[in-house]
């Protein structure tokens, strides 16, 4: 079927995100089948989130509608439409970790950080997120700080790790 693409707005140089970085990513993946997911991953890796303002640029490059791109972004829990804290702390909420006290660990971390799952600490340092299995089920409960896994996690171990990594964004 021939698509009647509605015209998207022209690129605005004042858009609140790095349009050149996005353009580079779109160029890198040009004409590669099924490229929307890797494009969104790369944009999030580069900008920390997928700015809603970047959707027209993505859509135009892929000859898709904004609706299609928005539908994909909103389906996957990994993709963020707003910046997160400086570091992401994922706490496993699945069965194996439940069997080893993850419910209490989560509650204690929420109290320690002063924010709930899906929220960011007041100082913008840490975003606390639920995750459903990290594949670290033989050392439950497990968490991940950035890309760094931590097994048999305790509040003390997690906060120590957060403090130790205070200078680096993993």
């Amino acid at each position: 079927m021939k698509r009647q693409m509605a015209t998207t707005r022209d690129l605005d140089p004042d858009l609140p995100y790095d349009t050149e970085a996005v353009a580079g990513i779109l160029e890198h993946w040009r004409d590669i089948p099924g490229n929307l997911m890797p494009i969104l991953h790369d944009i999030q890796a580069a900008l920390g989130y997928v700015p809603p303002e970047s959707v027209p640029q993505i859509a135009r490059a892929l000859n898709q509608s904004r609706a299609e791109v928005h539908g994909v972004i909103s389906f996957y829990h990994d993709f963020r439409s707003a910046p997160a804290g400086r570091r992401i702390l994922k706490v496993c909420q699945a069965e194996s970790c439940q069997a080893m006290g993850s419910r209490a660990l989560t509650a204690d971390l929420e109290a320690e950080l002063g924010c709930g799952l899906g929220e960011t600490t007041g100082d913008g340092e840490v975003t606390l997120e639920p995750v459903y299995c990290l594949g670290l089920c033989a050392c439950s409960p497990a968490v991940m700080i950035g890309d760094e896994p931590l097994g048999r996690a305790t509040v003390a171990a997690v906060t120590a790790r957060l403090a130790a990594k205070g200078e680096v964004n993993p």
Binding site: G34, M37, H41, V72, F75, H77, D78, F79
Partner: peptide, 25 residues
């Protein structure tokens, strides 16, 4: 190698195929 984005359902084969095609899973 293609990377998922936090969707358990994409372990179902048809949903995974949709995701590989760049769609909602």
């Amino acid at each position: 190698v293609r990377v998922g984005a936090g969707a358990y359902i994409c372990g179902e084969e048809t949903s995974m195929l949709d995701s590989l095609e760049g769609k909602r899973g």
